[in-house]
């Protein structure tokens, strides 16, 4: 077991931040903690790293109980959101710091620092100060500084949020590739669902100090366990009532339909209902079409059969998610 959180609790300033949180991350797995700001994901990460004491519960790293150890005694290494590089040290000194603390010889430090900087492709900047290199490079130095410690677990706190969009995608892939190659257990905190879905083996969606769902990105999207997750990941058409003969009928519970699970056609097909197009929005590689049917308003993502506003069309519901009391029932 790479990481095992058991019944974690944390109250800060009278507010419950983390409430009975359990999480098990297997060895070599990459897991995202995903949620809006204030959901407790960063608090959880800081408790794993040891910067925050837990009020109750246990933290096991690589099978060892580290709940009462300080951050210096834990086999974890963190990459901070703003990288937290020491401005008075060169890149090589930053990366070498953990090794120097460990008491390694100059020769060993040199060797490992060079290897780590080689790994993040920054060897040419080894004598540069953090202030002299770009944000993306600073981030790689921070990553090298974490990896050089050969930690049992790597913690990444919003590692990409300070990079511009183009760079973000590249760094994301670099991190994923490196993580796979080194087989290092990794927990990454992010509020960006695209980032979480594309980089992780499993994603823990958090809300109000609890984990709503912990599963693979695919399951998260196709079978969101709660209404909250369905809303948070991707888009959804939400209706009070249940599905009967291809139509939303009054009933108990909530029906959610993904915009791409709706089929739009010019002539009736089996199970379709007529409606009027209200709005067509080009969204790049697909179109968003808003159709009013007598049972409600539907947002549809489609790349074929694109109507114009005012057209009479037919819409078929291909797949729906049923929720009762916020939980998925089918």
């Amino acid at each position: 077991m790479g990481l095992d959180l058991r019944g974690l609790k944390k109250t800060l300033g009278g507010r419950v931040i983390i409430d009975e949180l359990d999480l098990r991350v297997t060895n070599g797995e990459m897991v995202s903690l995903l949620g809006p700001s204030g959901c407790g994901k960063t608090t959880t990460l800081r408790m794993i790293a040891g910067f925050l004491e837990v009020d109750a519960g246990q933290i096991l790293l690589a099978g060892r109980d580290v709940t009462n150890l300080g951050p210096d005694k834990r086999p974890s290494a963190m990459v901070f959101q703003n990288y937290a590089l020491w401005p008075h040290m060169s890149a090589a000194k930053n990366v070498g710091y953990p090794l120097k603390i460990k008491g390694l010889s100059k020769v060993q430090i040199n060797e490992k620092v060079e290897a780590a900087l080689e790994l993040v492709k920054l060897i040419h900047h080894k004598n540069s100060r953090p202030g002299q290199i770009s944000g993306g490079e600073q981030q790689r130095v921070a990553l090298a500084r974490a990896l050089v410690q050969e930690p049992d677990i790597l913690l990444l706190d919003e590692p990409l949020s300070n990079l511009d969009a183009k760079l973000r995608e590249k760094v994301r892939e670099d991190i994923r590739e490196l993580q796979r190659r080194l087989g290092i257990t990794t927990v990454i905190v992010t509020h960006d669902q695209e980032e979480a879905l594309s980089i992780s083996d499993r994603v823990a969606v958090m809300s109000a100090g609890k984990i709503e769902q912990f599963s693979s990105p695919r399951d998260l999207y196709l079978r969101p366990a709660t209404e909250y997750v369905a809303n948070f990941i991707g888009s959804i058409n939400r209706f009070e009532g249940e599905l009967q003969d291809g139509e939303i009928a009054p009933g108990s519970g909530v029906t959610g339909i993904r915009p791409e699970d709706l089929l739009i056609s010019m002539s009736p097909v089996e199970g379709s209902q007529p409606g009027v197009v209200e709005l067509v929005i080009p969204r790049g590689h697909f179109f968003e079409v808003v159709v009013i049917r007598r049972d409600g308003k539907f947002r549809i993502f489609t790349s074929e059969n694109i109507p114009v506003a005012g057209d009479n069309v037919h819409v078929k519901i291909k797949r729906a998610l049923r929720y009762r009391n916020g939980k998925l029932i089918e």
Binding site: A49, G50, F51, G70, P71, D72, K73, S76, A77, M78, F80, N82, A84, L85, W86, P87, H88, Y97, P98, I101, K102, R145, Q149
Partner: peptide, 24 residues
Amino acid sequence: NLEEAARDAGASKFTVFRTITLRM
């Protein structure tokens, strides 16, 4: 967080003070 980073890297509180806080 510069101090936290040093703690995370394995430095004791005093070492952090000496090598990071005081230095900066």
